[in-house]
Design a protein around this nucleic acid. Structure first.
Lengths: 188, 188, 188, 188
DNA sequence: CATGAATGAGGTTTCATTCAT
DNA sequence: AATGAATGAAACCTCATTCAT
């Protein structure tokens, strides 16, 4: 049984994805089947709801990453591919979450403290990449730049996969192809 | 002498960049040193202001592209590099315009008709790339996907250049380096 | 206990009558003792408020008509007199409602759908007159024209009664006199 | 050659008739082919324009009345018929003026001083009717009430004639018929 | 006289948030 | 905890009127 808080978050997710960040809290509450004021029993403000939604989604992504076993990969390329695949598969399975986190990012709407928290929980994977960089598999690019490039390209790859409704084998091929474009770009 | 309309547009650009798309029209007008209602003598609605701002910026980019001489390049790689450099140099010189057009895009806020107009004025450069694709210099990627990848990566490159405040020679090196990452990704 | 919605409607009625249709919604709200936004919890727009006010008033008139027993009259003259009297008495008792509905009509401000609804609820009385016309008690005038004449004259009669502050027996006499002028005009 | 002032008045007339009293002065000016501010060289305020328009129309009506020769009629019925016909014929020839003066009246928008002026120029015809009343051709109705009744009914008659697009002989018949309804109502 | 850009008060409507029940 | 009516600040936009040219 899904908790009422989670139910509100799920409704908010759907409405943000469908109508943008300007959806009134009243509409979220109504769609979630609770009273206007009830929403504010679970979240102090609309900002709080957005922050929680973002944090929860990112936590979910981290769990996928952890389940992928990237830490057991034998080199940066391999571990990068594992994360690349994990993230794309998760995005295809959760297109709304992918879309809404992107919306949050470009609208610059998530609270700094939450952004810091998220950075924190992704630290292990950052460190993993850091280690790989030191092993000189790739061009002399600093970690942040590499991340940016990776995020930008994985985003493109996801958009394409969603646009073409890729699944199963076709999706796996797409993952490999797009990873190739990324990796060829940054590899030495 | 800058026209009043251009002055309002410039002010809007600065405020959108600094505070997001939610800046009140009243604030734009005040900051521009005109009365609240005056803004609406130049733009029918806030939407109209946004559309005009977007269109003007894109027209400016096209002019830079035309001045770059990409049409005289001998192959796709060369013409791509010319455009790549033009766009990055322009973005570094006009960081607010770069930022705000990106904001407009991810907020999906520009009117469809204006988007169509913009697509139109970029058509020559699209066709240029189309031709290059046919000459088999790059992987079997369709034009739209290629554009997406290019836009994503050029965006990353710009963000990095801005973050590091690159200028002159350092900027030129950065342009070449980032183009390399892009081109190695997509080239055969 | 009068509902808040009815209280707002009553306040609007008084202000429309006193100051015309241009009264700001803010003034209506303030006069009604509620916040600006509260008015819009009860009516979606100012137009909605106007429509509801009009519809409610017309429903009230229909109830008076139904209570008058015009349908039991033995001929058109008699039933006409019943309605004539009912409407004048109601108008004298509710001068603001009379005034404001007239204002709405001449400003052509009520939504078409509401006008249609109102036409509908008056249909039985229309049909009553239709029947009378067929029985050749009056000149060869079509129903709509007859209604127009009647409405125009009953309006005059009401204005006169209000101007002279007629009540009780004097009012009843006035009703008979004015009906006479009307009926002599249209009767064969 | 029509004067610029008259041209603006004519344009205002058409726009008021077509779109209601809320037409912006800017629209009137534009439609009249003059600059926004020019309108205010001819009329001190929008109210002034409305007053002038109303006064001019009423002066025109009085001229028609004077040309009709009602003062040579041998009794009240005859002189009433002359005026009745004059007014209806004028209204059919000038439907916009008829419509707009009615709009002005029901919106209660004409300045009191102008209303007084208009009353003044109609005085001769008032006095004519006054005399007729004393000769006991009609019921014991005071002059103002009689005027109200007449105005109300002549209005209905005009609306019907306009709705049916009556002209020539049919219009003359309609004038006689409607006058009959009126006169039978008030005659002894 | 003619112009039309500029003005800014004022109108309608939205919506995050509160709080008495 | 849940409710939902009430709030009022703030947003966008209109338009009669002015005035420098």
């Amino acid at each position: 049984m899904i908790s009422k808080q989670d139910h509100i978050l799920q409704t908010a997710l759907e409405l943000f994805a469908a109508e943008g960040l300007a959806v009134p809290t009243a509409k979220i509450a109504k769609e979630a089947g609770v009273a206007n004021g009830t929403l504010f029993n679970y979240f102090p403000t609309k900002q709080g709801l957005i922050d929680t939604l973002y944090l929860n989604i990112k936590k979910e992504v981290v769990q996928k990453f952890q389940a992928g076993g990237a830490d057991k990969a034998k080199n940066l390329k391999e571990s990068s591919l594992v994360l690349w695949g994990s993230y794309i598969r998760w995005s295809i399975a959760n297109p709304l979450k992918h879309k809404v986190t992107n919306m949050f990012m470009s609208a610059n709407i998530v609270s700094p403290s939450v952004l810091a928290q998220v950075k924190d929980i992704f630290r292990p994977f950052h460190e993993l990449m850091q280690k790989g960089i030191k092993q000189r598999e790739i061009k002399n690019i600093d970690l942040d730049s590499l991340c940016q490039i990776k995020v930008a390209q994985v985003g493109v790859s996801i958009d394409q996969a969603l646009a073409r409704n890729l699944k199963g084998k076709a999706l796996e091929t797409h993952i490999l192809t797009s990873f190739d474009i990324y990796w060829n770009g940054v590899a030495l």
